[in-house]
Design a protein around this nucleic acid. Structure first.
Lengths: 246, 246
DNA sequence: CGAAGCGTTGACGCGGATCAAAGGCAGTGG
DNA sequence: CCACTGCCTTTGATCCGCGTCAACGCTTCG
């Protein structure tokens, strides 16, 4: 009923691309916002390669430079929950305790920079100024985690997938990993290429792969998207998709 | 399948009581961890009174001193999602942007300290050292938000409620707001008094009040809890309840 | 005592899980 | 070049947990 809740046009959740904190020029030292990652080590991971495991010592922070990273967790019964996806520019591996509470792996082939902490939990690292610059990343993760539990708690399969596609699109549309033609030309800007599997999507949205597949079909049936193979999706009616969000 | 994922005995999520960050003595200046809240203003709220609204200027940070605060959001269709509950010692109102993305209200009568920021988004506040001490709070919120989406994404009504009860119990058992007798005596330590409504629980767990009610009955039927009225619950079999968590 | 909230209980239907099978598609080897 | 193999995805049939609708009990307060 309250009217001020109608915040519109922001559907992105769980796709971290580091744009939000970068867009705040009044952060002290924003230019080197994650400068502590600059002297890190570049590492490449093939799809499904684990980057760190739930329970490992949390002695690194990471930043994605290419591809998509997922954070996830296995349940006792073998089920898997995918917490979030991280894209170019996003920081992951932030932990309060001295061990990771969740695993991270490459959802597609990807490249990350890893920065080694000096054996201390990150809130206790020696460089306070560097740590300060992690607060925006942490708050960004937090906001997206909250948005995601809202989706999981309140929304149907169609709505969750619609939101996912919008978020995925917003995550790539400004980046360089565009499908098809290399020039920034005509209106092909609502094509997306899913470099992650149906299973990753399903485990993230709290659905099964069968339901995800059926829901893709449903969205196509409603003329909101066009499927060209399993991985290539055109967002035929972005307005309609956004209608379904939140 | 991986064995190191079996982290046991930590079921608390979404109940923030500020114990975790306080338990890290190696945080620089942990004693005054939230000292920036010390010169704040004490405020009292009756149940359901809004503390701040989604969309308001995010110019305050809060710390709970008594009672339970919920953060929540209304959806367009009138549904409500309760993101988290905050208890004595917990900090809430942390935001990346300059406006709150979620509302906060008193889930029970409660008292909070509000600290006014100087008109800037909090990551840009003048006192960097003070800000630094918010990082643990933010990371704690983040971990719990992640745990909560896991519950919502993967678990059944019975499992969610079991986890909720364990978390609620862990949140009160060490605090002073104990039910019944005032002395720290015999084994009544697994009685809890729910000061929040079924609706708050339902909206938090992504269920309806009917299902929550039925699930309480189911847990009692399985002899995991004993209900003495709607608000007083004895955790008769904590081990059994924990079996259901995660 | 009546009214208003909150909580419980029952009947029924639907959305998504489960079980089962078959259709692309890429990589491999003959 | 084509058959073979394994993985990912789709599609169909059935089942079940939870939502929905409806009615009733309990408590509180005027």
């Amino acid at each position: 009923m309250p009217a001020q809740f109608q915040r519109k046009g922001y559907a992105a959740d769980t796709f971290y691309d580091g744009r939000r904190e970068g867009s705040h020029p009044d952060v002290p030292g924003a230019a080197e916002a994650h400068y502590l990652l600059d002297n890190g080590r570049l590492r490449h991971f093939v799809r499904d390669r684990e980057i760190y495991g739930d329970g490992d010592k949390a002695d690194h922070i990471f930043k994605v430079t290419a591809g998509i990273v997922r954070t996830y967790k296995f349940l006792r019964d073998g089920r898997r929950h995918v917490d979030a996806f991280y894209r170019k520019g996003a920081v992951f591996g932030l932990e309060l305790g001295e061990r990771y509470s969740i695993s991270a792996a490459a959802a597609s082939d990807c490249t990350v920079i890893s920065y080694r902490l000096n054996g201390l939990p990150m809130y206790a690292a020696s460089d306070e100024r560097a740590l300060l610059h992690l607060l925006p990343s942490a708050l960004d993760c937090l906001a997206r985690a909250q948005a995601h539990s809202l989706s999981l708690g309140c929304r149907t399969a169609v709505e969750r997938l619609a939101k996912f596609l919008i978020a995925y699109h917003e995550g790539t549309s400004s980046a360089d990993e565009r499908p098809g033609s290399s020039d920034e030309g005509a209106g092909s800007s609502n094509d997306i290429v899913l470099t992650i599997t149906r299973k990753d999507i399903a485990d993230h949205l709290g659905l099964t792969i069968e339901t995800v597949s059926r829901t893709f079909a449903e969205l196509e049936h409603r003329a909101l998207i066009e499927l060209h193979g399993a991985r290539q999706v055109r967002l035929a009616d972005q307005e309609g998709l956004r209608e379904l969000c939140l």
